[in-house]
Design a protein around this nucleic acid. Structure first.
Lengths: 195, 195
DNA sequence: CTGTTTCGTTGATATTTATCAACGGATAAA
DNA sequence: TTTATCCGTTGATAAATATCAACGAAACAG
């Protein structure tokens, strides 16, 4: 059932993971089902868990003064969800995270994460790799946001995350890219003509 | 001379730093002067060092197909410079980093960073704190980029980084915010009227 | 099956932002 | 000093994108 996570660790680390260690991990992390629309984290909450998505889809977003949602992050299988700021500072989160599909998540607390990292080299390596990958990816996203027009941002996104296009509707993708659904619709029509 | 870095470590960590450990750090990291306009990293280079700015100012930017520069990151005293992607993947960087003022930088290689982190708990804590702070800050920047209009982005920036406004000219700030210098000039005029 | 919501599209229009061109002041270099 | 470069501003105009409104199709809930 959680084989997916085991493979994930193996993929992100060089040290092998013993049967014993894997048992410790499964004994520590709890599997929880979030039904469609259920909150993983709600604005004002403190983020006590990070979650590894075993299957399903979630989104992280902020809500502005006019009630409009802005998608900060999308996550599918093998992605993590949680709010780093709230998690590390223990402050109320300004974001919401909810399930877009029914989603199975492996939960871990900060304390347990520290424990497992100390006890299991492969786990520690994985954590470091996650952070590395995340910072690289988000750096690119900032670069795209400040230097590319809407159509190129979409082209980039479609190229790098074709799976997201299959799982999330266009108005969600649009919000993620910082444009309206109407603009995205027009951008897509254009890009079809040219191919 | 590098007292600034010592204070920085102390501030970001809870473990004290012994005289012995500090000596090890200064013996490992090299102080280098970059004169105004000198490259710290040039597009196509592999980023072999991260640098802690002891004094001065640097900028990181990409250059698009039309030759326009897009400021990815600005850095003053107590900030780090380097390209995470190139550094971790050992791939040629797509960014440039150069000195905006004459700048003194403490250099460290990846190997040395690992060594010092293993040997010195305070150093390790500092590295973790940097990564935490960085991910939180850049997350907010993405949020701003996709959910705020130009004037609010500027107001936010001015509020959070008043020191940057003093040290970098407006066209650099504008690029950092993803707008043109003309637009920034108009935004500022508006914001003056209202206060 | 039937009403309801979600989703994507399109058109008309408004707003925001970029582009282009020009200017004056400040600063640095010769 | 003179000359050149950098910097910020402004106006006129163009382009990109948002907003508002309406529609039909599909998916879903009762």
């Amino acid at each position: 059932m959680c084989e997916r996570f085991r493979n994930y660790i193996t993929r992100l680390s060089t040290t092998p993971l013993s049967e014993e260690q894997w048992k410790q991990i499964t004994a520590t992390m709890r599997l929880k089902l979030f039904r469609k629309k259920q909150y993983f984290l709600q604005e004002g909450d403190i983020c006590k868990y990070f979650g590894f998505i075993v299957n399903g889809a979630m989104r992280q977003y902020s809500v502005d003064d006019k009630g409009a949602e802005h998608i900060i992050r999308l996550a599918l299988e093998d992605w993590w969800v949680g709010d780093r700021e709230s998690w590390t500072m223990l402050t109320p989160s300004i974001y919401n995270i909810d399930a877009w599909e029914n989603t199975e998540v492996l939960l871990i607390t900060k304390a347990d994460l520290v424990l497992l990292s100390r006890a299991i080299p492969a786990f520690d390596e994985m954590v470091r790799a996650i952070v590395e990958n995340y910072t690289i990816a988000i750096q690119k996203r900032v670069n795209a946001a400040i230097s590319m027009p809407a159509d190129r941002r979409y082209a980039d996104f479609a190229c790098n995350h074709p799976d997201f296009l299959q799982r999330f509707p266009q108005h969600i993708i649009a919000s993620y890219l910082g444009i309206t659904k109407e603009t995205l619709s027009r951008v897509r029509k254009q890009s079809l003509k040219q191919s």
